[in-house]
Design a binder for these strands. Structure first.
Lengths: 134, 134
DNA sequence: CCGTATCCTAATAGATACTG
DNA sequence: CAGTATCTATTAGGATACGG
């Protein structure tokens, strides 16, 4: 690897894969499934605000990508159980690192946001942007 | 947290923060900025397919969250330099872990997808697949 | 050069009704 | 229970045009 900066091309596999796994619900679904298999509505109850449609789509994508397996239990009414796969479990390591980072830096990000938003407010006059020391 | 499965509530700070950082371009922008400061159009050239609008929005959010700093150099025409902050740099560790996971498991995910997509095709009357272009 | 503003279209989310 | 189907509303994305 040279010292050149990386260029991200459109068909870069990592880009395509990132779009698959970094969606709104996947990380939470995998976390919820970590302790063991779970049925659809049980998962749903753990994710406040998710709609049935959104969860279905998310679970389909996770299944398609091999991160979750789906098992239909032929009772009546039908029961469907979702289970995290070995592959899905392996993804949890980077996810947990990201989660830990978020917990560690919540206040710092919040503070940055507060400062940024404040900077925008007072500008009733000609607010020439002052180069920050950062 | 107890042994109970976690329930993700809507105002969970980690959820809100995740939505901020797990967007389409942030991870790539931070990676590109890693070696040192860079100007707007230079960043743009490194991210194939990004529009000016999308990159502007992404950089604003990164700046607001304290992950990137923005410095206007008052020459004519104006030059603007973006630099990754210490906070942004710290986020690179979990990002790199995620990136490494993707590289490690590209084939495995691809294979899972192939199997899943194959499974969906039958049902049009025959057990035998008609070879498709894909 | 580095944006913002505008317009337009495409994609997504949400609500609701329905089925095995 | 676990979806699918459908419709609508809101949003996101892309293409200019323009300004400091």
């Amino acid at each position: 690897m040279s010292c050149e900066r990386q260029r991200f091309v459109v068909d870069c596999p990592s880009r395509l894969l990132f779009d698959q796994i970094a969606d709104k619900w996947s990380m939470m679904v995998l976390t919820v499934l970590d302790p063991g298999p779970m049925r659809f509505n049980a998962i749903k109850r753990h994710l406040e605000g998710v709609t049935q449609k959104a969860l279905t789509q998310c679970l389909r994508r996770l299944e398609r990508n091999g991160l979750v397996s789906r098992r239909v239990i032929p009772v009546s009414p039908v029961a469907v159980e979702y289970e995290i796969t070995r592959l899905g479990r392996s993804l949890q390591h980077p996810f947990k690192a990201l989660y830990a980072w978020m917990l560690d830096h919540l206040e710092e990000v919040d503070e940055a946001r507060r400062i940024f938003d404040e900077r925008g407010l007072p500008g009733s006059g000609t607010d020439f942007r002052i180069p920050t020391t950062s």
